[in-house]
């Protein structure tokens, strides 16, 4: 309900309609005075001029209370605050701060005690509360209309923004490649060479099959897409001599004979055999996928690609990088 009222400004409009235009102008002036006094109070307090700061904070509260008088000149403070739209808690807080206005103000910074600090905070909060509540109630019809439109536009922008954020992945799904493998090498339970490493765009991380085993790695393409070729970098340890890479150890795994299977609509649409060489530089091999007739023109709507490692060099198979070329 409060949100609806915040956007509709019904209560504010009812109060504003009953305010005399001259009184409205004077009250708006009072609110502006209050705002300026509160701002300078903050600055003075932050600069260590606390006695002056407290004085300005109290001036700010006085000005806000004077402005409240415009919306119901003959009412009591309690009624006035209620008409300004404050709930019971806020009314009590403002009334308490207003009650302390009569206390003598400290003459110097040295005379400012802990109670004065509390009074400063209470006065500033009360002024702010009152100003926020009064501001829409002191607008004319044009101003109210403008405020209403601004609030509606803000609410709309927030709703649209949140909805867009929530729906973005559904509306505009980012192309994704999920990867899995028949197995991966695990060394003494702490070192691993998982299949994700073959599609992470990092040439120095690898998927390794367990030593001595043949196996496969499979890429699932979301959404299915046209694929013209694969570019593959064989497993290697080219950088093993790098003294700065504590994680790099020599290994003796690389794939030799591979068979690439491509699937679209649940059917196998290509099967290509290739032989990889062990690499000593950063060479990649391009394997065109030309469909069942091998025309080299690529395949449409490919949803899955499986690379079967049929044999390997030395201890086992593995790949460093797989790129899907569209």
């Amino acid at each position: 309900m409060r949100l609806v009222e915040h956007l509709r400004l019904g209560e504010a409009a009812a109060v504003a309609a009953s305010v005399d235009p001259v009184a409205r102008a004077s009250a708006r002036e009072g609110l502006a005075d209050s705002e300026a006094a509160s701002a300078s109070a903050e600055t003075l307090w932050a600069a260590g001029r606390v006695a002056l700061g407290l004085g300005r904070a109290l001036d700010g509260l006085r000005a806000a209370l004077d402005a409240a008088r415009a919306i119901s000149p003959d009412a009591t403070l309690e009624e006035r605050l209620a008409r300004a739209g404050l709930d019971a808690t806020a009314r009590a807080r403002v009334a308490a701060a207003a009650g302390a206005l009569e206390a003598p103000a400290p003459a110097s910074d040295g005379a400012v005690g802990a109670l004065h600090g509390a009074q400063f905070v209470a006065a500033q909060e009360a002024s702010d509360t009152l100003r926020r509540a009064l501001a829409p109630r002191l607008l004319d019809e044009v101003g109210l209309g403008r405020l209403r439109r601004a609030r509606l536009a803000t609410a709309l922008a927030v709703v649209v923004g949140v909805a867009l954020l929530a729906l973005w992945p559904t509306l505009f799904p980012a192309p994704r490649i999920d990867v899995r493998a028949s197995a991966y090498r695990v060394n003494d339970t702490v070192e691993t060479w998982p299949p994700e490493n073959a599609v992470d765009r990092d040439e120095t991380t690898y998927w390794h099959l367990p030593p001595g085993e043949a196996g496969w790695i499979e890429l699932e393409l979301t959404p299915p897409r046209h694929v013209s070729a694969l570019r593959i970098m064989n497993a290697h340890d080219n950088h093993v001599r790098d003294p700065h890479r504590a994680d790099r150890r020599p290994f003796h795994q690389a794939s030799r004979e591979i068979r690439v299977h491509a699937f679209a609509d649940g059917q196998r649409v290509a099967e290509v055999d290739a032989t990889l060489e062990p690499i000593t530089d950063w060479t990649r091999v391009t394997i065109p996928l030309g469909g069942a007739d091998g025309d080299g023109g690529g395949l449409d709507d490919v949803e899955r690609i499986r690379i079967e490692i049929r044999s390997f060099y030395e201890e086992g198979g593995g790949l460093a990088e797989i790129e899907v070329l569209e």
Partner: peptide, 9 residues
């Protein structure tokens, strides 16, 4: 987790 910690992810 062994597998995950070994990955770039």
């Amino acid at each position: 987790m062994y597998r995950r910690i070994g990955s770039e992810r």
